[in-house]
């Protein structure tokens, strides 16, 4: 970007850094593609049940029949209509992923900020605790808890959130520590601003953009891991329609009736990829904005 353009821009705002970042992100093709992809799947998941004409658990024919006028995507391993199950099968995945992500990011954010702004000892113990959780591969932690307490949706949400916490906390901690080294934090300390106020009013605004990027990564991971849990049989239980579960149930028919597997596979994949593309677009915009500020 030339300085002429930079000038033009700096003269026409004041605008908040967020809106600048967002506009820059929207100018990237990948952000737009990502928004369209994830928007499509999210809309389908949200409004699918409204579009559906019949009960997803109704048997409409023999198992594994290819697409026909009656069942546009054919039937599944029990002879249920794949399309109807697809229309119903995204909502649970969506709300579970969203809740898990929001919970994980918020708690991780709080822990990371406290650790990053604390003395060595508090910082050390908090991060060590995070390391302990991190020692479990995400899916293992989830599977162990689910196996003992049963495949309860809230438990899965909590466990997935738990697996996000150390990752978000580590990122937040390093961002906070960078931020705390700046003189404006000392300036706030020099007028006896309470710690909580410094964290919320001075530090937090500097974390929002990197955390927005992180949240998209976490969301894509939530989708992947919650779908994977259903896939390995520890998530949503039959006969409930769910994309992850459908993939597993219909695997045996992959050769005969690929649509029963591929439809949910594509939807999960598009959602994860779409969310990631948006995140990458924001990330690129952030680094672009920083470069401009640096000039």
């Amino acid at each position: 970007m030339t300085s002429a353009q930079a000038n033009a821009q700096s003269e026409q705002r004041p605008r908040s850094a967020w809106s600048v970042t967002w506009r820059t992100a929207l100018r990237q093709p990948r952000t737009r593609v990502g928004l369209v992809l994830s928007g499509f799947v999210i809309a389908l998941a949200l409004f699918g049940p409204l579009l559906s004409r019949s009960d997803p658990n109704e048997f409409v024919g023999a198992p594994f029949i290819g697409p026909s006028g009656e069942a546009l995507l054919g039937t599944d391993f029990l002879g249920q209509d794949v399309l109807q199950r697809v229309l119903h099968g995204g909502r649970t995945l969506l709300w579970m992923s969203l809740t898990a992500t929001i919970l994980g990011v918020l708690i991780g954010l709080a822990i990371g900020m406290i650790a990053g702004y604390s003395r060595r000892r508090v910082d050390g113990s908090l991060m060590w605790l995070m390391d302990v959780i991190l020692a479990f591969p995400q899916i293992v932690l989830a599977v162990v808890f689910v196996s003992m307490l049963g495949p309860l949706p809230w438990l899965i949400v909590l466990v997935v959130a738990l697996t996000h916490i150390p990752r978000v906390a580590r990122l937040t901690r390093s961002l906070t520590a960078d931020c705390v080294r700046q003189e404006y934090i000392e300036a706030a300390e020099a007028i006896a601003t309470p710690k909580s106020r410094i964290l919320i009013r001075e530090v937090l605004p500097n974390l929002t953009t990197p955390l927005a990027v992180e949240a998209t990564i976490r969301l894509a991971w939530s989708v992947a891991i919650i779908a994977a849990l259903s896939f390995v049989g520890f998530g949503v239980q039959p006969p409930f329609p769910d994309w992850g579960l459908m993939i597993n149930e219909n695997r045996i028919g992959l050769v005969v009736q690929p649509w029963s597997v591929l439809a949910p596979v594509f939807l999960v994949a598009i959602l994860a990829v779409g969310v990631s593309l948006v995140g990458d677009g924001i990330a690129r915009a952030v680094s672009g904005v920083d470069e401009r500020v640096g000039q």
């Binding site: 990948r30 894509a220 989708v223 992947a224 891991i225 779908a227 994977a228 896939f231 390995v232 993939i247 695997r251 992959l254 690929p258 597997v261 591929l262 596979v265 999960v268 994949a269 994860a272 990829v273 969310v275 990631s276 593309l277 990458d280």
Partner: peptide, 20 residues
């Protein structure tokens, strides 16, 4: 873009894709 896509794909999707 390719690595971004594969990075986002759940493992079981990659696995099933290879099977297909």
């Amino acid at each position: 873009v390719t690595s971004l896509t594969f990075n986002a794909l759940p493992e079981f999707v990659i696995g099933l894709g290879l099977v297909v």
